[in-house]
Structure formats: C-alpha cells, structure tokens
Amino acid sequence: VSGIWGQRFTEKCLRHGAEVVQLVKEAGLTPSYDEIAKVLEEEKPQVLFLCHGESSSGTKQKLDGVGELCAKHDCLLVVDTVCTLVGEPFFADAWGIDLVYSGAQKCIGCPPGLSPMTYSDKAYEKVMNRKTKPDIFSFDVTEVGRQWGFNGDKRPYHHTPPINIMFAMREALQIVSEEGLEASWNRHLNAHYQLWEGLDKLGLKPFVKNPEDRLSTVNCIEIPDGVDAPRLIAHAYDKYNLEISGGLGGTAGKVFRIGLMGYNCTPRNVESVVTAFEAGLKEQKWL
C-alpha cells in the first residue's frame, strides 16, 4: 500500500472478511522485489495485490519477476491497471499476472462505466472451484460468465449490459489498435518527458524522486513553499479552462496532479498545462 488505491483495495477485502497484511510504503515510494519476496515468505498469502499505477502519488510499480515469485509460493497475483493500461508497457502473460482489472475512461479513452478484466487459467480455476458462492450475485463472475457464454453451454439472463458503453469501448479499442500499442506507450512517455521539461524550467519538482518509479500517465508535482495551491488551481480553471488536480489521501495538500491519458495526451495539451502553471505562478509572484 503506497496510496489511496491500495487502501481502497484493503478496505474492500476487509469488508468481505479477508485477513489482510499490508506492506506499507510512504507515498512516492514503491515496494521492492526483495520486500515483496520477504512478505510472501513470511506471511504465505493466497493473494498478492499490487497497483501498477498509483495515481494518488504518481508511482509505477515494477512487476517483472513478481509473477514467478507468486507462483513459487502458490499465491495469485492481482494487479490494478486502471491508469496504466494502454499508457504504460504491460505484459500480463509474460509477467505471470493472474488477475488484471482496469478502467475504460483513462488511457483507453472510453466513457466511464466499464472495468475490463482478465483471468489467468490458474485464477479462473480458483474462481470456478469456490466452495461457497460469492455474497454479491451481481459481481459473481461465474454467473456473469454464463451470460457471456464462456462458462456453461447455455446463456441465461444475468443483467442488462450497458450496450452503449460497450459500443464506445469497441470504438476506443479500435482507435488504440489503429495507433498501435507501442506507439500509444511512446506517446504517453513523450508527453511525460515534455511536461517535465517545461515544469523543470519553471523550478517545479517531481514528487516521486526515483525517475524509474514515476508514472507517465499521472504526474505528481510538489507544491512549492510559498505557493497557494487552491489559488493556482482556480486560476488555471478560470483563465485557461484547464483542470489541475490536487493530491488524494496521503498526498492531499502536498502535490498537484496532472493526468496525461488517452485523448488528453498530446503535445498541445502539455503546452497548455505548462502555460497555465507559468501564468499561475507569476500571478502569485512566485516567478
């Protein structure tokens, strides 16, 4: 847990009666391979959860080798890719990840309302061999699977799908396909570099100190001493019709957050963000 989304996952597990052991890191840091290995060895968990992109603190979790580590301990690896799928390199099969969930509205660029998920064979087998039924019928993937036709011979009614959003998702994925996955990764990374080149010239500093741990899709900027953050945010919105976010959870009051995802991730939009920061800092006579 290094931010609000790890905390939220913990809360959800606790509400379902799970026994949770947290590996807590300060906001802006990520757990190392060795720290993860130590926890797996000592606690012997059934599931390890990691957030690939912790958008509340702007960190990117290294995943290479963790899947093999989990397999060694007969532990399922669950990864949150809500703000990274299509925006950051991600290899579910090669990295041995058992369950992945994401969001439609971030880098994929679809309206919100869907959560794409994928299961490894091991995770799917685990779900299908449950000894008890899930306590929420609507979220029972075995029932959902019957309606979608990947579980059982018949397709009984389970719920009315949001068809309009599904057509939107199909179009969004078509756009991703036309651009190409690697091209999309590079576009997000180049926007990240462009943003920090501009912010560095203004004297602004990244909240995540290790460049390897920085998300390209959600960028966290330290609020400098002497800067009124709400005033700068309001100035950007009023003068430039541009929304700059504040921190979440442990980073509230400490950072600005800039999302460069999907359609928003263009050189022109990055220029607008840098211009708004420059104007807001000058308005406060910080520059």
Rank of each mutant, 00 (worst) to 15 (best):
A123W: 06
Q46W: 00
K38V: 01
V20Q: 04
L199G: 15
G96F: 10
N186H: 09
G247W: 11
T118P: 00
K201P: 03
L76Q: 04
K72C: 05
L77S: 00
C220Q: 00
C110H: 05
K60C: 06
L181N: 15
S184F: 12
A183T: 07
V273Y: 15
V255L: 01
E88G: 02
N219C: 08
S56N: 14
P111I: 09
N190F: 09
S2R: 06
D34Q: 14
K239I: 01
R8N: 08
T251S: 11
W286D: 03
I223F: 08
G247V: 09
N269F: 12
R231E: 11
E11P: 05
G180L: 00
L48K: 14
D74E: 15
L85D: 02
K239D: 04
W185A: 06
G262I: 05
K239A: 09
E182G: 01
K72D: 04
S177K: 15
L260W: 03
E243Y: 13
Y101E: 08
W5M: 08
Y240P: 00
G113R: 14
A18I: 04
N164E: 15
G149E: 09
K282P: 09
W95I: 04
P161M: 10
E88Y: 02
L76C: 14
L23A: 02
I97L: 08
G247R: 03
T59N: 08
G67Y: 14
L260A: 09
T10N: 05
T59I: 02
I258W: 02
T118H: 10
V86P: 07
Y240N: 07
V141D: 09
C107I: 11
I97Q: 01
Y240I: 02
N129T: 09
K254F: 09
A37Q: 01
A27V: 11
H16K: 04
N186P: 05
L29C: 11
P45Q: 04
E271M: 03
G53K: 00
S2F: 10
S138Y: 06
S120H: 10
K72R: 07
V208K: 15
Q105Y: 14
L242S: 05
Q147M: 08
K25Y: 09
I108H: 00
I244N: 13
T142K: 03
A183W: 02
K205G: 05
I97T: 04
D228R: 03
D74M: 00
F256V: 03
S56H: 07
L215K: 04
N219H: 00
A252C: 11
V208S: 02
F91G: 03
M261E: 06
I221T: 07
E243V: 12
E243I: 14
Q22G: 05
P161K: 12
T251P: 15
K285Q: 14
M261L: 13
L99R: 07
I175D: 10
I221L: 00
R170S: 12
E43S: 06
I97H: 10
L76G: 13
L40A: 13
L63Q: 04
A234V: 11
D238Q: 12
